[in-house]
Amino acid sequence: MRIRATVAAVSGALALSALAVPAAQADGSSSYRTDVAKMQEAAHAAAGKTAYTGTTGPTGEPYDLDVTFSNIKVNAGKAIPVGTTKQVTVPVTYTLKHASDVDITADDFLTGPYLYKGSFDEPDNALFGDYAASCTATSATAASCKGDVDIYPEDLFNSDAGAWKAGALAIAYNGQNPNDEDIDLSKVGYADQGGFTSPNVQRYARLTVNASPEPVKKGKTVTVTGLLSRANWDTAKYAGYTAQSVQLQFRKKSSDTYTTLKTVKSDSKGNLKTTTTATVDGYFRYNFAGTSTTPAVKATGDYIDVQ
């Protein structure tokens, strides 16, 4: 699903729109987007936020589906770096428990995970998968489920970097067609549960290094420059990450281990610059430890020949 969430703060009912149609229709087509928007409006109305104003359209409210979720694990607990152009697919596993009268094998039963920023009732942003999750029954009333959250950079703002929460939802259409304008929502079951731990969503980082002059005489000064930058989701470009502490490291040509020489701070444009003394042939690199909003990154070592 690719709907930027500037207008998506529709409480926990927002999640209903994420799986508004069967997975086979989640192809980015205009009809899919129309159906999602329709269900989102209906869910919003059902949550008591905004009245549904159409002369025709969904009637009733979804009933509480007897389904609960637990053991949600997002991306194996690892942080989720996102760049400026590429879709990031995040694997999620969870346990689904249901009442004996809920048929999770029905063609029109859908479940899936999602991530949300801010509060569960009124999230600042929410991210869903393009397709519903798949579940394998482990007992008559429980299943192990696997799904994805598909993150597109254009769905993110810079302010979204950092902490998120995870949730999962389920919809039982019970024969109701989600594409019908006059769908009877009172016959549709809906369960939604949030508050689960998620790793941080981070702005992907880049780091470069250049040591000069090359070659250099032993005992002479080596100038090491670089650039620490990270994804800017507001502009879809990379921008310098300012005022960050970055380690200058060196390893001898004959060694596999880098040693930290000093710590350098990036300037107002993310640039790095410092000097050191040439001693032996080897590789210089910059090493950034990362922050809650930006992943750790190491520059590829730049070899320098000391004569």
Rank of each mutant, 00 (worst) to 15 (best):
I72Q: 03
T50F: 09
A231S: 15
P215C: 08
A133K: 14
Y283P: 07
A143E: 06
V216C: 12
I80T: 01
K262Y: 06
T263Y: 11
A51C: 05
T223L: 03
I171E: 01
L156G: 04
G290A: 10
S100G: 09
S100H: 09
P113Q: 07
T34N: 15
A47D: 12
A205E: 13
Y116A: 12
Q307I: 13
A166Q: 11
K49A: 05
E61L: 00
S268W: 04
G195P: 05
V224F: 02
R33I: 14
D155Y: 00
Y190W: 13
R203G: 10
D101T: 13
V82A: 07
A243V: 05
N210G: 07
E41P: 03
T111W: 01
A140W: 10
D130E: 12
A42E: 01
Y286K: 10
A142V: 11
R230P: 01
D192I: 02
A8M: 13
A168H: 12
N158Y: 09
N71I: 01
T225G: 05
T276R: 03
L261C: 01
Q176Y: 02
S17L: 13
A142F: 10
Y283L: 07
L228Y: 05
A79K: 05
A43C: 11
A172V: 04
P91A: 03
A24K: 15
S229A: 14
T235V: 10
Q307N: 13
Y152Q: 11
E154I: 04
C145E: 09
E181T: 08
A13V: 05
T6H: 14
V102M: 08
W233R: 13
Y204V: 02
T235F: 07
T197R: 06
T55V: 06
D160K: 04
D27E: 14
G12T: 07
L261R: 00
K252V: 00
G57Q: 00
A37F: 13
P199S: 10
T34S: 15
D256T: 07
S186M: 00
K237S: 11
A243G: 10
P199R: 06
L169Q: 12
A46R: 00
A18D: 09
G54E: 06
K146I: 03
K73R: 08
A172P: 01
D234L: 15
A143C: 09
